[in-house]
Amino acid sequence: MHYRPLQITRFRFTVLMSFFLLSFSFCSYFEKEKEPISVIHRLQDMSEMATVEFVVSKVVKVNDVPGWYKYGDRKLLISCKARIKAGINMREIGEDDIVISANSIELRIPHARVITLIMDPESIKEEYSKTDFFRSSFTNEDRYAFLAQAEKEIKESIPQMGVLPQANAHAVAFFESWLRAMGFEHVHVIIKPLESDNLQP
């Protein structure tokens, strides 16, 4: 019996290699989550009346320009939104802060503070991403590190946004309407002076 030796021509080799390389890109997937492990948990009391909610948006812009030893750019744009809730601590209203005489009442409430700052997961969207051949793509670890920087910037810019004055004004309006509903004719709600730096959530 005569066996013909397997001959791989240049054309066949090229076709095989092309198929081999191209086939890596045709992938589909499914994913599965496992039962989570809870590490710590703790329940705590609080008594904060939130009176204002600010919705702010920010575009996270990353431009990874190469240094002398790098070649190729990486660019990323992520849009995100954050919700900031601010209000007053009800536990800080003591007996001394309420003065009643006949149908008049004077109520002193504490200065507003930020209660929560949340970056909505639904609002986080990758708008644009570009990675040159010599660079690796951004990982989620990278993306979340950038989002954490954005979160810090939003937190730091809260005093400039006017969140707390709005929260104070709404708190005054809220208590005035409540106290009027309770039958007081002359209502005077005052904001106590700010005692400490408690602006951050």
Partner: peptide
């Protein structure tokens, strides 16, 4: 950082 919305709320945490 753009302020998109300011809402008056009354939530007791």
């Amino acid at each position: 950082i753009m302020v998109e919305e300011i809402k008056k709320i009354s939530q007791l945490f």
